[in-house]
Computed example of a mutant assay.
Amino acid sequence: MTSIDTMAAPKLSKAESRSISSRIWRMAFASTEFKIGLAVFAILMLAAALYPELSGIDPTKMNIRAKMTPPLFMGEGWDWAHPLGTDQLGRDMLARVLVGLRYSILIGVTTTVLMLAVGALIGLVAGYYGKSVDTVLMRLTDAQLSIPMIILAITILGVSRPTIPSIIIVLGLAGWPVYARVMRSTIMAERKKEYVRGAMVLGATDFRIMVLLLLPLVLPPMAFVAVLDVARMMIFESVLGFLGLGVQPPTPTFGNIIADGRKYLLNAWWVATMPGVFLCLTLTSINLMGASLERARNKVYGGA
Rank of each mutant, 00 (worst) to 15 (best):
M1I: 10
S3Y: 10
I4R: 00
M7W: 10
A9C: 09
K11V: 12
S13A: 04
K14H: 07
K14N: 03
A15F: 07
S21V: 15
M27S: 12
A30C: 05
A30P: 01
T32E: 04
E33V: 12
F34P: 01
L38Y: 07
T60A: 09
T60G: 01
N63F: 12
I64Y: 14
I64K: 09
A66K: 11
T69S: 09
P71E: 06
L72G: 06
A81Q: 12
T86R: 00
L94W: 05
A95G: 02
V97P: 00
L101R: 02
R102C: 09
I105L: 13
M115R: 06
L116D: 02
L116N: 00
A120I: 09
L121N: 09
L121F: 14
K131G: 02
T135A: 08
L137Q: 05
L137A: 06
M138L: 07
L145C: 04
L152M: 13
A153K: 05
I154N: 04
I156S: 03
I156N: 06
V159Q: 10
R161Q: 13
I167T: 14
L173I: 15
A174V: 06
V182I: 15
M183L: 02
R184Y: 00
M188G: 03
A189R: 12
K192Q: 15
E194M: 10
Y195D: 06
Y195T: 11
V196W: 03
G198C: 11
G203T: 13
A204K: 09
F207Y: 09
R208Y: 09
M210E: 11
L214I: 15
L214E: 01
P216C: 08
L219S: 08
L219N: 01
D229H: 12
D229K: 06
R232L: 11
M234H: 00
S238H: 02
G241M: 05
V247L: 08
G255M: 12
G261S: 06
W270M: 07
W270K: 09
V271M: 13
G276S: 14
G276D: 10
F278K: 03
T282C: 14
L288N: 06
A291Y: 06
V300L: 07
Y301I: 15
